[in-house]
Design a protein around this nucleic acid. Structure first.
Lengths: 348, 348
DNA sequence: CACCATGATGTTTACGTAAACATCAGCCAC
DNA sequence: GTGGCTGATGTTTACGTAAACATCATGGTG
């Protein structure tokens, strides 16, 4: 290579300094710069200092595109998720980003506006051209299957909020365990049975909670009342809650998330049924606001931070050559007792 | 559910097919493959079909690292934000990701765990090595300044939740306008003055709302009661709310966000003061749950989607050679009337 | 029919990095 | 002193893509 002017683009400021620029200034070869840049041993201390000084002077930053090209990895994890409107997804995403950063990985976000097969397919096809080494999917796996996903063969996948541990690596909250705790808590207070304000049918988490609710009642030899459903939103909880409020015999409700529980509280309040004196309500999630509901909500705390952390662990483990098998990891929940549950009226 | 082999196929030869592979199979030069891949005109239809077929057969995907290296751009925007615990940040982030995707840009997330200068500096230094063309910062700009930010010269920055339109390009909700609307609404209902449950001192948004509240009162020749502060959380709103609830003369409160308003509602409820009969409460944000509070909360709707969209627009505009000057873009708020405000007791 | 414009395609090169290999001085053992 | 070894550094090459330039038929024009 002949005398080469450092990349000087006239119109729009100058581009960043390259290794060659640093090498020239330090009077060494670019390979030596590379060695210093990567903390390689075997560089004379004096030389190293010269190089570091030259780097500093030129404001050198390694070009990650070139690095990725050479190394064949991007050190980036893609996260596909539905709208960030649920606390759980957001908190999980946040934990993923934090854990990934700690491992030296960046996180690229791929939001899917509406949970249709087309949208999911679109996200994945964008992903295919994206610079990621692995993918964490926070959504229903059946949409994933239906989208005929075709990822580059080396891209690893971990799924949240799903079963399918036989096809994918799955990390999730222990939905069934948490639900059982909720139902048992209410039964132990003396309620004859527990009603359920469930989530939407197409959600695996909602399905799992509804199934576990039924199972826990069956196990305790109690009749299972009809299931009412919302779509996770407080508004839907309010609408469904009006039905429940009208039922005299309903004294205990397990809501599939805190937001619907909020709506339910409003419906009960409007119907003149006091919580917890007349009706006990228990939620699921433990969102930050639930301690400020009227009354403060008893609920099951989900450890989203742990879920996110485990996702990153799992996906990084899979990227290693001896990558492990598929399987499901469950994160336990914790009962948070506040003021929305009490013994039924008859027992008071 | 469809039988589907997991994406992991080890030992299946090379990881990904390159242009050269496709070219070989199609019997053309790799340059022709490049032309087809980039939708260049001037390729014989027959040749194009052959290339496309070869691509399909080999499962060819362009290597984004190589592409980025060649083109000198990553088509990625970095987003630095504090914890995703506030609705506003999350919604803005989501809108940014969606808008960016529409423009063919990916979004890389850089969460900052705690808002200390050190943490911010850490995030930026990680960012320096990151593959981004531009950065959107969702946080207090004073932390940004203190962190002695040193970004590659070509990386553009747009800031949310800040003033400093003279140093940076800023997009934000019209805090002052919204606040004025809130205060005027309460005064028009007949309240003598309006109290303010403010956000934390180190938040620009909180500061701006508090200032505007004071200004609106001064303008209407009303006395400004002492300011009470929370930290945005519902719990802090509850604590601060107990002070307000104890003040007989307090009949109207403007809470700086909906979550604190929620805590305030609980404090008022516990103190036996009815909303809106005894005390009117107005919030800020219009989070999805606020329609389900007891009572449903009157509040100012923030258009986070629009803020996010404008951020992306602004940052892309700045990336063009004729990049525009710094400046501030404000997004208006909208008053959402629900059931938490009414004329004061004396007027009833 | 010579000429040149046109369209289709191939060849060269460079982007910035880092592995692999090459060089070379200094030193020790025999 | 010679051979071999070690440590420090330089040179070559390749990663996959795409701009710039080169080549080469074809066909219309004068």
């Amino acid at each position: 290579m002949a005398e080469r002017t450092p990349a000087q683009v006239p119109g729009r400021g100058r581009a960043t300094a390259s290794m060659a620029d640093v090498a020239r200034l330090a009077g060494v070869s670019s390979q030596t710069v590379s060695r210093v840049s990567n903390g390689y041993a075997g560089v004379n201390e004096e030389t190293r200092q010269q190089v570091l000084e030259a780097m500093k002077e030129l404001g050198y930053r390694p070009n990650s595109a070139a690095r990725a090209l050479k190394r064949g990895e991007f050190r980036t994890i893609g996260v596909i998720t539905f709208t960030l409107s649920t606390t759980g997804n957001v908190r999980t995403l946040e934990a993923i980003a934090t854990s990934a950063a700690a491992e030296g990985y960046a996180v690229t976000l791929l939001p899917v506006a509406v949970p249709t097969t087309d949208e999911v397919r679109g996200a994945f096809s964008r992903l295919e051209e994206l610079a990621v080494d692995a993918v964490i999917v926070i959504m229903e796996v059946h949409l994933l299957d239906a989208a005929t996903v075709k990822l580059p063969p080396h891209v690893q996948v971990v799924v949240v909020d799903s079963d399918a541990g036989d096809h994918y690596t799955v990390v999730d909250t222990d939905q069934a365990g948490g639900t059982r705790t909720a139902v048992q808590h209410l039964l132990e207070l003396g309620h004859r049975t527990v009603w359920h304000l469930g989530g939407p049918e197409d959600s695996f988490a909602a399905q799992r909670r509804a199934d576990a609710w039924r199972a826990a009642l069956t196990e305790a030899d109690r009749p299972a009342p009809p299931l009412v459903r919302g779509d996770w939103s407080a508004e839907s909880g309010y609408l469904a809650g009006r039905e429940l409020a009208a039922r005299e015999e309903c004294t205990a409700v397990f809501a599939a998330n805190d937001q619907m529980a909020l709506g339910l509280l409003r419906a009960l309040h409007e119907a003149g049924r006091r919580v917890p004196e007349d009706v006990s309500v228990i939620g699921f999630d433990d969102i930050p606001e639930s301690g400020s509901f009227l009354p403060p909500l008893t609920t099951l705390h989900q450890d989203f931070a742990e879920v996110g952390r485990l996702c990153v662990q799992a996906v990084l483990r899979k990227m290693r050559p001896d990558g492990s098998e598929h399987g499901t990891t469950l994160v336990p929940t914790r009962l948070v007792l506040r003021q929305s549950t009490a013994p039924p009226p008859a027992e008071r």
